[in-house]
């Protein structure tokens, strides 16, 4: 936590995702209000906040399920895009640009399936969304759809059973097997996904997202409903994903044991605005975070406001 001493953090130097002035309005309700933050490449970043703070809305904006009312979401493949590249993409109205060593995608311009298929941002859902009537293995095969579709010659080669398709299918199965091993579901590969216990379904959803080969994995409350032992296993899994695959992780989480244990960077939301941003250590002691989470007595409100005024006064 020596980062505290340095004002420049890893996520500022090489962000994989930069959220700039994100607004999301539903009619008169402002769910996300001028939110800006960065997700560092190779970091585990946690997005936390009380219920209804707008975390899932931010997720839906990033993954293309909502079109933001305002704002720019920049995803950089390979390295952070330079200012010139960024200006070029923003002005020419394209969804993204990619060169041999790097790519830049403006996620707010992309439909949901392209955010996953082209920009390589995978996500899981707060209420698990598995293909419950399909087997565990089939779930992982569907996740590799785009690659397999090309390999099957848009079904033509597949219908004829050409060897190139058979090989591709075998490779995809191997990849699925690898992830089944990782999440400990190899034994249940041929069971319907809907038959798995809750914790296993959560792990399967992560494995399915990873099968699509993402560079940024967005997890919406991955530890919800898990017991302490399963939470611990989840921590291990997320660490392994980052270490072995270099996948950056952005997660929404309420379970503080997970957040404080594994994240490198924490962003705190309340009522759609960012109230704190920094290392877990720094965020934990931020009076605004404490106030947002625990609430304060009537008497303490003024005291906290005084502290806040002092803090903001000192900054400006």
């Amino acid at each position: 936590m020596s980062d505290n001493a340095l004002p420049i953090h890893g996520w500022d130097k090489d962000p994989i995702l930069t959220v700039e002035h994100l607004f999301m309005r539903f009619g008169g309700l402002v769910a996300v209000n001028d939110l800006s933050f960065r997700v560092g490449r190779g970091d585990i970043t946690a997005l936390i906040g009380p219920n209804g703070a707008g975390k899932t809305t931010v997720f839906n904006c990033i993954t293309g399920f909502y079109k933001p009312s305002e704002g720019r979401l920049i995803l950089g493949h390979g390295r952070a895009p330079t200012a010139e590249e960024l200006d070029a993409v923003t002005l020419n109205g394209e969804r993204g640009l990619s060169s041999s060593d790097a790519g830049v995608y403006l996620l707010e311009r992309m439909p949901d399936y392209k955010v996953s298929g082209e920009a390589k941002v995978a996500r899981t859902f707060q209420n698990i969304r598995l293909f419950s009537g399909m087997t565990v293995l089939e779930n992982l095969m569907v996740a590799q759809h785009n690659a397999l579709m090309t390999a099957s010659g848009y079904s033509l080669k597949g219908l004829l059973g050409l060897p190139s398709w058979t090989t591709a299918q075998k490779d995809a199965t191997e990849r699925a097997k690898y992830w089944l091993d990782k999440v400990g579901l190899t034994e249940r590969a041929d069971d319907p996904a809907g038959d798995l216990p809750y914790g296993a379904q959560r792990r399967l959803e992560i494995a399915r997202a990873m099968c699509s080969g993402p560079i940024l994995l967005c997890l919406d409350e991955p530890a919800a409903g898990l017991n302490p032992r399963e939470s611990l296993e989840l921590n291990e899994l997320l660490r392994a994903i980052r270490a072995e695959h270099g996948t950056s992780i952005l997660l929404i989480e309420h379970d503080m044991s997970v957040v404080m244990e594994i994240s490198d960077h924490v962003v705190v939301l309340d009522y759609g605005t960012k109230i704190s941003d920094g290392t877990p250590e720094a965020v934990k002691h931020d009076p605004r975070v404490v106030a947002a989470y625990l609430g304060v007595d009537e008497d303490a409100v003024e005291a906290v406001e005084a502290v806040l005024d002092e803090a903001t006064g000192a900054q400006s």
Partner: peptide, 8 residues
Amino acid sequence: IACRSLGL
């Protein structure tokens, strides 16, 4: 929705 989240 899950389909779209997987790039289909």
